[in-house]
């Protein structure tokens, strides 16, 4: 199995995209997951539904609306243009933003479940031991909900690696910028380069299998935080 330079670029880009998205989603998703886990607001239902939308929508729908929003006439597009950044579609950062929306439930739900299963008690105990809110989050919640965070990171990463429809809508197929592995495979098939498509596809299967194996092995070892998303 050998990869061409374009294939290697696609693999590297995919890893870069998935890492960036996972990192950003952990930062953005944690407060949302925290809020969803702890609130009794009447907005909980609607927000949870919005977060879960990518689970059921065709990726093309998300891609389509993001394309319009980030395009030259869209609200986001006008904003980025006014900052002198140009428009986001067909750029790496456009892909990052689209992937964040698309992979959001896979990161938020495991964290939310982990925080919900902690309950109030550890937080109350921490407060009676003089730990302030941030102290409590980093020294009590994070370690206790660690399995949930690890699950979230693995799923967020794997799911971003595996996306195709959103990439095609937002990113197109620009080598080194938006041409990720899944799109590259499509490209090879279109060009009847089945050998190279095989190599990349086999790599994806291997990767996904190892990720899931690691995930289930990890969940068996640590506390089981049920995956509600899959």
């Amino acid at each position: 199995m050998s990869f061409s330079q374009a294939d290697m670029a696609a693999i590297w880009l995919t890893i870069k995209l998935a890492s960036t998205v996972t990192l950003l989603l952990l930062i953005i998703g944690t407060p949302i997951a925290w809020w969803l886990a702890r609130t009794s607001s009447r907005w909980k239902g609607p927000i949870a539904a919005v977060v879960a939308l990518p689970l059921v929508l065709p990726p093309t729908v998300i891609g389509f609306y993001l394309l319009i929003a980030m395009g030259p006439n869209g609200a986001v597009g006008q904003f980025t243009q006014s900052l002198g950044l140009g428009t986001l579609p067909f750029t790496f950062w456009g892909l990052v933003i689209a992937s964040i929306f698309y992979s959001m439930p896979f990161v938020i739900q495991p964290i939310q479940n982990a925080i919900e299963s902690l309950g109030d008690r550890p937080l109350e105990v921490a407060a009676t031991l003089r730990a302030g809110p941030w102290d409590t989050f980093f020294n009590v919640v994070l370690p206790l909900a660690k399995p949930g965070f690890i699950t979230a990171a693995i799923l967020g990463f794997a799911h971003t690696v595996g996306e195709f429809g959103v990439v095609l809508m937002i990113g197109g197929n620009i080598p080194g910028e938006t041409q990720v592995v899944s799109v590259q495979i499509y490209e090879h098939v279109e060009a009847m380069e089945y050998g190279q498509a095989h190599a990349l596809s086999a790599l994806m299967i291997l990767f996904s299998f190892i990720v899931l194996l690691a995930l289930y092995g990890f969940q068996r070892k640590g506390k089981v935080h049920a995956l509600s998303v899959k």
Partner: peptide, 28 residues
Amino acid sequence: TYKRPIGYVFQEASLFDHLSAHENLLFA
């Protein structure tokens, strides 16, 4: 609560599971 000089013992054991007994004491 975290600014009140209180000690609180809950009805059921409330130790932090991720810390040993000694680390639980150190936390306080």
